[in-house]
């Protein structure tokens, strides 16, 4: 609140005309609302962290308050009962290959669509955009049947391929925007220098769209790490489950231990939070792509 009072009025001209007071009251109101909203966004982290660090008895004494003593017991039990380590590893073994596969396929496809003068490129791009608008739930059952029929149910490869396909349309669309920013003349120059399409992609195009690729990888990692429904349906077996399935099923038990759930949640949040801290700008760029054009 102090900060609001201290901040200089943005447009002195207007302030003077409207009389003093009013704009700063408005700003104060905005600030208060924003502060409350911000608290609701930060509180989950604080709550989960504090609940994970205290005993169950302590939690029951004052659920929303601060812990009176700390314990690492919840974390130990998150590993022994929830098998959080195993779940995280499962997730990584699906998500990392899928993210890499998406990046490779999307790069090649976007490159071909934008720069290799393919006859049907406009039509194909339109089809890709239509696929983006398709809600994945609609595909849940036929994809389940397909995976079942080819014997990839409860197989990581099945989920990797499904994840790759589901995220490809968006990824191709995102990358075409970056591909277009590479001047055509550079590609021509590379061709004259003797580079074939593969070499041109590798030595000229990729270095130039690295920021776009970064955005794509972080965004896809986030999406897939957090994904639930396809993972739930395709990797049903106990020991292969991904982290979100494991947590969702664990916390659904009637006599769950809040501390252990919180410890699991906290650990599962680490990758998204790291991405949030280090790649916030990439995420923002990816999520707003296409909004203003």
């Amino acid at each position: 609140m102090n900060a609001a009072a201290d901040s200089p009025p943005l447009r002195p001209r207007l302030t003077a005309r409207r009389g003093i007071g009013r704009p700063s009251v408005g700003k104060l109101a905005i600030f208060v609302i924003f502060a409350a909203l911000a608290a609701s966004c930060i509180y989950p982290l604080l709550f989960v962290a504090s609940t994970a660090l205290r005993t169950n008895a302590d939690y029951r004494a004052s659920p929303g308050g601060l812990p009176s003593s700390f314990t690492s017991e919840n974390f130990e039990r998150a590993f022994s009962q929830l098998h959080i380590g195993r779940l995280a590893l499962n997730s990584l073994m699906v998500v990392v290959p899928a993210v890499i596969l998406i990046a490779i396929l999307a790069c090649c496809a976007a490159y071909a669509l934008v720069h290799l003068e393919i006859r049907l490129s406009r039509l194909l791009l339109a089809a890709v955009i239509c696929m983006m608008a398709l809600p994945p739930t609609v595909l849940l059952i036929p994809i389940f049947k397909l995976v079942l029929d080819v014997g990839l149910l409860n197989n990581r490869l099945g989920l990797i391929l499904v994840y790759t396909a589901l995220n490809l349309p968006f990824s191709i669309y995102l990358l075409t925007a970056f591909m277009r920013s590479v001047p055509v003349e550079l590609l021509r120059a590379a061709g004259i220098d003797g580079a074939g399409p593969v070499r041109t992609l590798w030595s000229v195009v990729l270095p130039l769209i690295r920021p776009g690729l970064m955005t794509l990888v972080t965004l896809n990692f986030l999406f897939l790490w957090n994904e639930l429904i396809f993972s739930l349906v395709i990797l049903q077996q106990g020991m292969g489950r991904t982290i979100m399935v494991g947590i969702a099923q664990f916390q659904a038990q009637p006599e769950k231990n809040y501390g252990v759930v919180a410890a699991g949640l906290l650990l599962s949040m680490i990758p998204p939070l790291l991405i949030f801290v280090f790649f916030q700008r990439d995420l923002a760029r990816g999520l707003t792509a296409g909004a203003t054009k």
Binding site: I192, D193, G194, L208
Partner: peptide
């Protein structure tokens, strides 16, 4: 033949140097 198989070199109007 492709450009790369013609053994010619070209100077472009806006140079088209590889910026990276």
């Amino acid at each position: 033949r492709e450009a790369r198989d013609r053994d010619i070199a070209m100077v472009f109007q806006n140079y088209a140097l590889y910026p990276h």
